[in-house]
Protein backbone atom coordinates (compact mmCIF):
# COMPACT_ATOMS: atom_id res chain seq x y z
CA UNK A 1 0.00 0.00 0.00
CA UNK A 2 1.51 3.25 -1.12
CA UNK A 3 -0.66 5.59 0.84
CA UNK A 4 -1.11 5.61 4.54
CA UNK A 5 -4.70 4.92 5.49
CA UNK A 6 -4.25 7.30 8.39
CA UNK A 7 -4.71 10.57 6.50
CA UNK A 8 -8.16 12.03 5.93
CA UNK A 9 -10.19 9.96 3.48
CA UNK A 10 -11.34 11.48 0.20
CA UNK A 11 -14.50 9.42 0.20
CA UNK A 12 -15.99 8.04 3.36
CA UNK A 13 -19.11 5.87 3.53
CA UNK A 14 -20.49 4.96 6.93
CA UNK A 15 -23.52 2.86 7.86
CA UNK A 16 -25.00 2.97 4.38
CA UNK A 17 -28.35 1.29 3.88
CA UNK A 18 -29.94 1.38 0.44
CA UNK A 19 -33.14 0.13 -1.12
CA UNK A 20 -34.62 -0.55 -4.53
CA UNK A 21 -38.31 -0.14 -3.80
CA UNK A 22 -38.99 -2.40 -0.82
CA UNK A 23 -35.88 -4.53 -1.24
CA UNK A 24 -32.89 -3.60 0.89
CA UNK A 25 -29.70 -3.97 -1.15
CA UNK A 26 -27.03 -2.56 1.19
CA UNK A 27 -26.83 -3.21 4.92
CA UNK A 28 -24.72 -0.93 7.08
CA UNK A 29 -21.92 -0.73 4.49
CA UNK A 30 -18.72 1.17 5.20
CA UNK A 31 -15.91 2.09 2.80
CA UNK A 32 -13.09 4.60 2.48
CA UNK A 33 -11.01 5.85 -0.41
CA UNK A 34 -7.95 7.93 0.37
CA UNK A 35 -6.26 10.43 -1.94
CA UNK A 36 -4.22 8.79 -4.74
CA UNK A 37 -5.41 5.34 -3.70
CA UNK A 38 -6.81 2.60 -5.94
CA UNK A 39 -9.55 0.72 -4.16
CA UNK A 40 -11.63 -2.15 -5.50
CA UNK A 41 -14.92 -3.63 -4.45
CA UNK A 42 -15.26 -7.30 -5.30
CA UNK A 43 -17.90 -9.87 -4.59
CA UNK A 44 -20.34 -12.16 -6.35
CA UNK A 45 -23.30 -11.08 -8.45
CA UNK A 46 -25.98 -9.28 -6.50
CA UNK A 47 -23.62 -8.31 -3.69
CA UNK A 48 -24.53 -4.64 -4.17
CA UNK A 49 -21.18 -3.50 -5.55
CA UNK A 50 -22.58 -1.22 -8.27
CA UNK A 51 -25.22 0.04 -5.86
CA UNK A 52 -22.49 1.61 -3.73
CA UNK A 53 -21.23 3.65 -6.72
CA UNK A 54 -24.78 4.68 -7.64
CA UNK A 55 -25.33 5.85 -4.08
CA UNK A 56 -22.21 8.00 -4.23
CA UNK A 57 -23.41 9.55 -7.47
CA UNK A 58 -26.94 10.36 -6.35
CA UNK A 59 -28.53 7.79 -8.63
CA UNK A 60 -30.42 6.02 -5.84
CA UNK A 61 -33.54 7.57 -4.40
CA UNK A 62 -33.82 5.67 -1.14
CA UNK A 63 -30.86 5.43 1.24
CA UNK A 64 -29.70 6.09 4.78
CA UNK A 65 -26.32 6.65 6.33
CA UNK A 66 -23.38 8.87 5.60
CA UNK A 67 -21.58 9.55 2.32
CA UNK A 68 -18.87 12.16 2.76
CA UNK A 69 -16.56 13.55 0.11
CA UNK A 70 -13.70 15.61 1.51
CA UNK A 71 -15.65 15.71 4.74
CA UNK A 72 -18.83 17.15 3.17
CA UNK A 73 -22.04 15.16 2.84
CA UNK A 74 -22.96 14.33 -0.76
CA UNK A 75 -25.74 11.87 0.03
CA UNK A 76 -28.96 12.67 -1.86
CA UNK A 77 -27.10 15.18 -4.01
CA UNK A 78 -28.19 15.19 -7.69
CA UNK A 79 -25.64 13.67 -10.12
CA UNK A 80 -25.08 17.00 -11.88
CA UNK A 81 -24.00 18.46 -8.51
CA UNK A 82 -21.87 15.50 -7.41
CA UNK A 83 -19.71 15.81 -10.53
CA UNK A 84 -19.02 19.44 -9.65
CA UNK A 85 -17.26 18.29 -6.47
CA UNK A 86 -14.63 16.53 -8.57
CA UNK A 87 -16.03 13.01 -8.84
CA UNK A 88 -16.40 11.26 -12.21
CA UNK A 89 -18.23 8.04 -12.93
CA UNK A 90 -17.89 5.55 -15.77
CA UNK A 91 -21.18 3.64 -15.48
CA UNK A 92 -21.54 0.02 -16.43
CA UNK A 93 -21.87 -0.94 -20.08
CA UNK A 94 -20.99 1.12 -23.09
CA UNK A 95 -21.63 4.44 -21.45
CA UNK A 96 -20.98 6.80 -24.34
CA UNK A 97 -23.31 9.15 -26.20
CA UNK A 98 -23.64 6.96 -29.32
CA UNK A 99 -24.91 9.57 -31.78
CA UNK A 100 -22.18 12.08 -30.85
CA UNK A 101 -18.68 11.87 -32.27
CA UNK A 102 -15.76 10.71 -30.14
CA UNK A 103 -14.52 14.30 -29.97
CA UNK A 104 -17.96 15.63 -28.95
CA UNK A 105 -18.13 12.98 -26.23
CA UNK A 106 -14.82 14.23 -24.84
CA UNK A 107 -15.80 17.89 -25.17
CA UNK A 108 -19.00 17.24 -23.25
CA UNK A 109 -16.94 15.56 -20.55
CA UNK A 110 -15.66 19.08 -19.85
CA UNK A 111 -19.23 20.45 -19.72
CA UNK A 112 -18.89 21.78 -16.18
CA UNK A 113 -15.68 23.63 -16.98
CA UNK A 114 -16.17 27.23 -18.03
CA UNK A 115 -16.46 27.71 -21.78
CA UNK A 116 -13.83 30.44 -21.71
CA UNK A 117 -10.94 28.05 -21.20
CA UNK A 118 -11.49 26.25 -24.49
CA UNK A 119 -7.75 26.23 -25.20
CA UNK A 120 -7.07 24.20 -22.07
CA UNK A 121 -9.96 21.87 -22.91
CA UNK A 122 -8.35 21.33 -26.31
CA UNK A 123 -5.06 20.56 -24.56
CA UNK A 124 -6.76 17.99 -22.32
CA UNK A 125 -8.40 16.33 -25.31
CA UNK A 126 -4.91 15.98 -26.78
CA UNK A 127 -3.76 14.36 -23.53
CA UNK A 128 -6.62 11.85 -23.79
CA UNK A 129 -5.56 11.13 -27.37
CA UNK A 130 -2.00 10.53 -26.13
CA UNK A 131 -3.35 8.05 -23.61
CA UNK A 132 -5.67 6.37 -26.14
CA UNK A 133 -4.14 6.90 -29.61
CA UNK A 134 -6.97 4.84 -31.16
CA UNK A 135 -9.39 7.61 -30.23
CA UNK A 136 -7.45 10.21 -32.18
CA UNK A 137 -7.90 8.24 -35.39
CA UNK A 138 -11.61 7.87 -34.66
CA UNK A 139 -12.30 11.33 -33.26
CA UNK A 140 -14.80 12.29 -35.96
CA UNK A 141 -16.67 8.99 -35.92
CA UNK A 142 -19.88 8.46 -33.99
CA UNK A 143 -19.03 6.86 -30.66
CA UNK A 144 -21.81 4.30 -31.10
CA UNK A 145 -19.98 2.81 -34.09
CA UNK A 146 -16.80 1.99 -32.14
CA UNK A 147 -15.91 -1.43 -30.71
CA UNK A 148 -16.71 -2.19 -27.09
CA UNK A 149 -13.16 -1.58 -25.95
CA UNK A 150 -12.90 1.69 -27.84
CA UNK A 151 -16.20 2.86 -26.36
CA UNK A 152 -14.84 2.08 -22.91
CA UNK A 153 -11.82 4.25 -23.77
CA UNK A 154 -14.16 7.07 -24.78
CA UNK A 155 -16.10 6.69 -21.53
CA UNK A 156 -12.93 6.77 -19.42
CA UNK A 157 -11.49 9.66 -21.44
CA UNK A 158 -14.70 11.60 -21.01
CA UNK A 159 -14.67 10.97 -17.25
CA UNK A 160 -11.11 12.36 -17.05
CA UNK A 161 -12.07 15.63 -18.75
CA UNK A 162 -13.14 17.27 -15.49
CA UNK A 163 -9.75 16.36 -13.94
CA UNK A 164 -11.48 14.46 -11.14
CA UNK A 165 -10.08 13.84 -7.70
CA UNK A 166 -11.93 10.54 -7.62
CA UNK A 167 -12.83 8.28 -10.52
CA UNK A 168 -15.58 5.68 -10.06
CA UNK A 169 -15.55 2.74 -12.47
CA UNK A 170 -18.39 0.23 -12.63
CA UNK A 171 -17.17 -3.07 -14.11
CA UNK A 172 -14.88 -1.49 -16.70
CA UNK A 173 -13.88 -4.87 -18.17
CA UNK A 174 -17.41 -6.21 -18.61
CA UNK A 175 -17.92 -7.79 -22.02
CA UNK A 176 -14.42 -7.05 -23.29
CA UNK A 177 -11.92 -9.51 -24.76
CA UNK A 178 -9.11 -10.69 -22.42
CA UNK A 179 -6.54 -8.54 -24.27
CA UNK A 180 -8.82 -5.49 -24.13
CA UNK A 181 -9.43 -6.08 -20.41
CA UNK A 182 -5.69 -5.98 -19.91
CA UNK A 183 -5.35 -2.75 -21.91
CA UNK A 184 -8.17 -1.02 -20.04
CA UNK A 185 -6.80 -2.02 -16.63
CA UNK A 186 -3.29 -0.91 -17.56
CA UNK A 187 -4.74 2.51 -18.39
CA UNK A 188 -6.68 2.63 -15.14
CA UNK A 189 -3.49 1.90 -13.20
CA UNK A 190 -1.69 4.58 -15.22
CA UNK A 191 -4.43 7.11 -14.40
CA UNK A 192 -4.07 6.23 -10.74
CA UNK A 193 -0.26 6.02 -10.46
CA UNK A 194 0.82 8.63 -12.98
CA UNK A 195 -1.98 11.19 -12.81
CA UNK A 196 -2.53 10.68 -9.08
CA UNK A 197 -6.30 10.29 -9.38
CA UNK A 198 -7.95 8.17 -6.71
CA UNK A 199 -9.87 5.25 -8.22
CA UNK A 200 -12.75 3.23 -6.85
CA UNK A 201 -13.42 0.28 -9.11
CA UNK A 202 -16.14 -2.35 -8.96
CA UNK A 203 -15.15 -5.61 -10.62
CA UNK A 204 -16.35 -9.15 -11.21
CA UNK A 205 -12.83 -10.03 -12.24
CA UNK A 206 -11.49 -10.28 -8.69
CA UNK A 207 -8.01 -11.60 -9.51
CA UNK A 208 -7.14 -8.79 -11.89
CA UNK A 209 -8.48 -6.01 -9.69
CA UNK A 210 -6.91 -7.36 -6.50
CA UNK A 211 -3.54 -7.62 -8.22
CA UNK A 212 -3.68 -3.98 -9.26
CA UNK A 213 -5.41 -2.24 -6.34
CA UNK A 214 -4.01 -0.91 -3.08
CA UNK A 215 -6.95 -1.76 -0.90
CA UNK A 216 -9.98 -4.00 -1.37
CA UNK A 217 -13.42 -4.53 0.06
CA UNK A 218 -15.20 -7.86 -0.31
CA UNK A 219 -18.96 -7.50 -0.37
CA UNK A 220 -21.52 -10.26 0.00
CA UNK A 221 -25.30 -9.90 -0.12
CA UNK A 222 -25.04 -6.24 0.72
CA UNK A 223 -22.76 -6.69 3.74
CA UNK A 224 -19.06 -5.93 4.21
CA UNK A 225 -17.39 -9.37 4.44
CA UNK A 226 -13.65 -8.77 4.26
CA UNK A 227 -11.32 -5.89 3.64
CA UNK A 228 -7.64 -5.19 3.61
CA UNK A 229 -4.51 -4.76 1.56
CA UNK A 230 -5.40 -5.97 -1.91
CA UNK A 231 -2.26 -8.06 -2.46
CA UNK A 232 -2.80 -9.80 0.86
CA UNK A 233 -6.44 -10.54 0.07
CA UNK A 234 -5.30 -12.05 -3.20
CA UNK A 235 -3.50 -14.74 -1.16
CA UNK A 236 -6.25 -15.05 1.46
CA UNK A 237 -7.68 -18.55 1.46
CA UNK A 238 -11.22 -17.36 2.18
CA UNK A 239 -11.16 -14.98 -0.78
CA UNK A 240 -9.62 -17.64 -3.01
CA UNK A 241 -12.27 -20.15 -2.07
CA UNK A 242 -15.16 -17.73 -2.41
CA UNK A 243 -14.32 -15.62 -5.42
CA UNK A 244 -11.27 -16.84 -7.25
CA UNK A 245 -12.55 -20.28 -8.19
CA UNK A 246 -10.39 -22.19 -5.70
CA UNK A 247 -7.10 -20.90 -7.10
Amino acid sequence: MRTGRTENPLLQIKGLNSWYGQVQILHDVHLQVHPREMVCIIGPNGAGKSTILKNVFGLIAKNQGEILFEGKSIRKMAPEKVVRHGISIVPQGRSVFPSLTVRENLELGAYIRAGSESASIEQDIRKIFDKFPKLKERQHQKAGLLSGGEQQMVAIGRALMIKPKLLLLDEPSLGLSPQMKQVIFEKIVEINRKDGIAVLVVEQNARLSLALSDYAYVLELGHNRLEGDAKRLLKDKRVAKLYLGGA
Binding site: I89, Y111, I162
Partner: peptide
Protein backbone atom coordinates in the same frame (compact mmCIF):
# COMPACT_ATOMS: atom_id res chain seq x y z
CA UNK B 1 -29.01 9.75 -16.81
CA UNK B 2 -25.53 9.59 -18.30
CA UNK B 3 -25.87 13.27 -19.29
CA UNK B 4 -26.65 14.07 -15.66
CA UNK B 5 -23.49 12.31 -14.48
CA UNK B 6 -21.29 14.61 -16.56
CA UNK B 7 -22.94 17.65 -15.03
CA UNK B 8 -25.57 18.54 -17.63
Amino acid sequence: PLAATIGI
